[in-house]
């Protein structure tokens, strides 16, 4: 069995089975409603405030690194599959590219981008001045 047609068929089967199970459990399951049913679980105490809390911006940084370095990885994928045909010229290009990627990583590291929390960033700033 080969190609995209069989893949599409397989995906349809997977989605159908998962959907079927969800419908089945919806029909078989009980229904109940009690005093604590509609309250978010916070280890037994009543929740205060919204759950739309602010979270550390470091996670945003991680997401940005992902975008930057995953796009870099796309070029590596394209090279890896054709490395033999491209020969040493292609290798030289990818070597320079990898070194630049690592240089970018080293710069981020030195900037303290992988150090989490405001306190450590402030200490870093005081020690290094950037």
């Amino acid at each position: 069995m080969n190609g995209l047609g069989s893949l599409a068929l397989y995906l349809v089967v997977v989605v159908a089975i998962v959907g079927f199970i969800m419908v089945l459990t919806h029909l078989l399951g009980e229904r109940h409603s009690q005093r604590g049913t509609a309250v978010p679980y916070e280890s037994g105490i009543f929740p205060t405030g919204s759950a739309r809390i602010r979270f550390p911006s470091d996670f945003y940084l991680v997401a940005m690194f992902f975008v930057v370095f995953d796009v870099a990885a796309v070029y590596l994928f394209a090279w890896a599959v054709a490395a033999r045909e491209l020969g040493w010229a292609g290798y030289a290009a990818i070597l320079v590219f990898s070194l630049e990627t690592i240089a970018g990583l080293a710069y981020l590291w030195k900037m303290g981008a992988f150090d989490w929390g405001a306190r450590r960033k402030r200490e870093h700033l005081e020690r290094h001045g950037y």
């Binding site: 199970i21 459990t25 399951g29 109940h32 509609a38 978010p40």
Partner: peptide
């Protein structure tokens, strides 16, 4: 677990 409630929180 198939026969448990398919609960969707109101919140």
């Amino acid at each position: 677990i198939l026969t448990k409630e398919n609960w969707i929180p109101p919140f």
